[in-house]
Design a protein around this nucleic acid. Structure first.
Lengths: 230, 230
DNA sequence: TTCCTAAGAATGTGATCACAAAAAGAACGG
DNA sequence: CCGTTCTTTTTGTGATCACATTCTTAGGAA
């Protein structure tokens, strides 16, 4: 049985079943395809991915290591719930980590790379205008990732993505309830700062971008949703 | 065959084979029992832990998710090598993350908890005086963990431990070559700041503690070792 | 000696199965 | 109608096995 819920993701040939399952589930969680508190089963996902329990269990175990899932005491596997306090911690950590990563990326960014970042920002706007929420979210993540990974020795990206994964489920709820996008574009501000190679300004723009709108969503609205979903 | 290399770790009854394998391997890497570049095999570890490939493979996969191990393209599993640049990134991230975590823990610390932190600091000194390097390392980690986890909603600890794991192997090398401990005790400074509930001072003391000596080791010495071990 | 090739060994991968624990449902008694 | 107990089903766990890939090593040719 092939799942209709999991966002599609082509499987490059040569990729192991485990890697495919991991990538697929990870992507699904990151874009909010699972709601907080949802429970998943190994066999169920194995069927959905048309494989067997072994590689799926490995993928699920990996996802717990990065906070995307949770193995409960009763051996149930669930998408973690988020309290308002935990949400606030995650956001403040995002700000700390990502402004740090952005600052340390500035020196490594070539003009050509900055041009590519601008292209990604355009893609975000295009997705928003087209009403493709999930696509806008993915493009926004790519925008951030492109900046941080310019630093070749960077080690923060996996940690940042762990935070994105933990915030994913709540974004999924937000996407259902928010009809209007708040495009408070700190991205242009960040890009200008990148062009000037102004580390402080870049860090500040990224911090503001995170604080003011989580990937285009209004934070207050999410706060209210948390009271319900927590 | 039971391994003599892996640090012992009692297996509480009811703990699954997988959890035991994960905890055991994680602890081993964290205290530097494996050198950078070391390759491990699933069957080998399964024998050492007197179990089978399945739970061990799951544990190894989890360890790769947090940067403690690496699955190479050729399907070999190795302890990642660390370049001087990567080392510097890890340290700067530790400073960013841990001073952030410390700052946000201050408000939650009771006087009783601070007393317990002092006890842990005494344990570090005792271990150093007794020449028990690994024990001193563990006690030092407990000291830091005790502070950060005082914040009940904290989400940074797993990320911080990921950094500790990535630094573990290099600490293992350092422990072999460094005969003298440099006890630059910023811990007392941190404790005093905690007592005053002075967030800035706490963050500063933690940052200085990390910068000046990684768990009691001289950083410059590690830098030199990296040139050889990278 | 050096390089290349081929046979054998070692290793990761993934499906399967038996088992135990937990959850869900059915039957019964108050 | 509600709660309890027993049965059935579901589900995670871990050992095992077959397969494909990779590594190792032995042998031979230049």
């Amino acid at each position: 049985m092939k799942s209709l819920v999991l966002p599609g993701l082509d499987r490059p040939e040569g990729m192991t079943t485990h890697d495919y399952a991991f990538a697929r589930l990870r992507q699904a969680i990151m874009v909010g395809a699972f709601r907080p508190g949802t429970s998943v089963t190994i066999r169920g996902l194995a069927d959905a991915l048309e494989s067997s329990p072994t590689p799926v269990r490995e993928a699920l175990r990996q996802l717990t290591s990065i906070g995307a899932l949770q193995f409960l005491e009763n051996r149930r596997i669930v998408v973690p719930r988020i309290t308002p306090a935990r949400f606030e911690e995650l956001i403040s950590l995002r700000i700390a980590l990502e402004s740090h990563a952005a600052r340390r990326a500035v020196a490594h960014l070539s003009d050509r790379q900055i041009d590519r970042i601008v292209t990604l920002d355009d893609a975000i706007e295009a997705a928003i205008l087209a009403g493709q929420k999930a696509q806008a979210l993915i493009a926004n993540q790519q925008f951030h990732r492109q900046i941080y990974t310019a630093n070749p020795d960077q080690v923060a990206m996996p940690l940042i993505e762990s935070l994105w994964l933990q915030l994913g489920p709540i974004l999924g709820i937000a996407m259902e309830h928010v009809t209007e996008f708040y495009v408070i574009d700190r991205h242009r501000e960040a890009i200008e700062a990148l062009r000037r190679r102004d580390e402080d300004a870049v860090a500040q723009a990224i911090a503001a971008d995170i604080r003011e709108g989580i990937g285009g969503f209004d934070q207050q609205a999410i706060g209210k949703l948390l009271a319900l979903a927590g």
